[in-house]
Amino acid sequence: MSNGNMNLTLKVWRQKNAQTAGKFVSYKAENISPDMSFLEMLDVVNESLTHKGDEPINFDHDCREGICGMCSLYINGHPHGPKRGVTTCQLHMRTFHDGETITIEPWRAEAFPIVKDLAVDRSAFDRIQQAGGYVSVNTGGVPDGNAIPIPKVIADEAFNSATCIGCGACVAACKNASAMLFVSAKITQLGLLPQGQPERYRRVQSMVAQMDEEGFGNCTNTGACEAECPKEIKLTNIARMNNDYFSAKLFRQEEIHEQNH
């Protein structure tokens, strides 16, 4: 098992925590195999830093198969790197060439404060989901799974929206740091399915309100989010969200009553 022969220069953002200032630090990544994933390349760099007694580079990662949404990294001007439809953990070093300089930055957004180095705090996403990204059913007492037939095309479309992994690449890519692709994906998934209908208009209002509170920017339909989304969530989700929101706000009669905390 031999190592590879790629040598790269990394410009990595290092920042101890949200309170301190950060800066770029250059590292050499040597003997990199083109078969390595991007994160494995960072592992190699970190191993050598550790051997030298230096602090390894901190980055978020977990499943390393593109589904948990934990990894991030803004690589050479692209969230999750230059390859389409993959997360950083699925990006292989063969995408780069020997001698290349790679700039690695954290997601940049007011709503995603830096935790350390390349890791950011994405709890804003959780709070948006908590505001209404669910169907209010308790465990038990639900109808049979086949009680309500759902047209296959609707189920498939809902699935396409439901594949969002909550990584935040849409926010990172958007010039306005808007979270609308993320928010609209959940609204669309549940808005399409019959199970989501009873709370459809209530949900869109509470989720959008929370999104605004978190300090994300506004969508200007540039489509950068769609281009960078590792799960290729479509921009049409945002249009659906808008439609539901305006219906709810301008045409529906019911008021939303917030649950008591």
Binding site: Y74, E110, K175, A227, E228
Partner: peptide, 15 residues
Amino acid sequence: KARPVGYAVATKSDA
């Protein structure tokens, strides 16, 4: 305001 600190490498995202 939603992105107070910008990127060092300008975005190359398709838009």
